[in-house]
Amino acid sequence: MGETTDGSGGTVTETERVRGIGERVSLAGGAVAGVGAYLIGYLATYVTQSGAVRDRLAGLNALASLFGGDPVAAWQGVGWYFYNAHFVATVVPSFGGTRTVDLIASADASVGYLYVLPPLALFVAGAAVAFLDGASDPTDGALAALGVVPAYFVLALAGAFLFAYGAGDAGSVHPEYVTAALLAGLVYPVVFGGIGGAVGGVVGGD
């Protein structure tokens, strides 16, 4: 087991170093902030886009009704937009298989601001966690904000399945599962939550 010297001249084992880092992660506050960031991001998307989503789904729902299928609910379609805002593509059935689409990119350019919502929500969440945890420098703040990651990851993964419409690989419309887990669930909260946490640490240290 490797050892390093601490600031007082003593030695710190690698296990103690890892434990020390883990203790600086704010899991309780991060869980609340992670859930809040996900829900606020989704709700902001719903409030601003539910009407447009209903309009875009009208043709698909008419076709579904014609063949006795259930209509796509607006909250599901908004979910596709929400994951597209994380750059997670939507998988749709196609002849001979499936294809992926980005509904935001194919919509009016005025909805491009949706790409900003998840990073902004996570930035605020990370900053709040770091500030409330008493972080006094950027490193402590970024570490504290890592507590946002587990809750956001669980919701990002669960939501990818929750927003699926249809059944079976060929007949299901859903956010791309792997990208939803890795990009939306891990990269986004680590990067943007961490940046927010670092800023919160700077503010807390002043």
Rank of each mutant, 00 (worst) to 15 (best):
F95Q: 13
I104D: 04
Y83K: 05
T139A: 15
V129K: 02
V116R: 04
L155Q: 09
S94A: 15
L117Q: 00
A127V: 08
L162V: 15
F161C: 08
V101Q: 14
A156G: 07
F82L: 09
V149I: 13
A130D: 04
Y83M: 09
T100V: 12
A109R: 12
D102S: 15
A85V: 02
A109W: 07
D108K: 09
Y83I: 00
L120M: 12
Y113R: 06
A109M: 12
T90I: 05
G134D: 12
V92S: 07
A145T: 12
A105Y: 11
W80Y: 11
Y115P: 00
P150R: 10
V101N: 11
L120E: 00
A127G: 14
L162P: 10
D140G: 14
S94L: 06
P119H: 03
S110E: 13
V149Y: 01
A89P: 10
D102K: 04
G134L: 08
A125M: 05
F131L: 15
P119E: 03
L117V: 15
P118Q: 09
S110C: 12
A144T: 10
A105I: 03
D108A: 12
T90S: 09
G96M: 03
V88Q: 01
T100C: 06
F95Y: 08
L155D: 02
L155E: 02
Y113L: 05
A156P: 07
T139Q: 12
A160K: 01
L132C: 11
A109P: 13
F161P: 03
V154F: 11
A89G: 09
T90V: 10
A105D: 14
F161R: 08
G79C: 12
V111R: 14
A160L: 06
L162K: 13
R99Q: 14
A145E: 05
F161A: 15
A127H: 01
P118T: 05
G79E: 07
V91L: 13
G159A: 12
P118V: 04
G126R: 04
A135N: 11
T98K: 01
A145W: 05
A121V: 12
A145N: 01
V149P: 00
L120F: 04
A151K: 05
G97N: 12
V154Q: 05
V92T: 14
P93V: 03
T90Q: 03
G159I: 04
F87M: 13
G126M: 10
N84D: 15
F87A: 11
F131D: 11
G126T: 02
A128N: 08
R99Y: 10
V101D: 10
F161I: 14
A121D: 00
F123V: 00
S106G: 11
L162S: 14
G79H: 11
F87H: 14
A160E: 04
V111L: 12
S94H: 08
F123R: 01
A158C: 08
A109T: 14
G141S: 09
R99E: 15
L132G: 11
V88H: 03
G79I: 11
A145D: 03
Y83E: 04
I104T: 06
A89E: 14
G97S: 10
V148K: 02
A127S: 06
G134E: 06
G141L: 03
L146I: 11
Y152H: 12
V129D: 06
N84I: 07
V91T: 07
F123H: 00
L122M: 03
F153K: 05
V88D: 01
A144D: 06
F87W: 13
S94M: 06
L122Y: 00
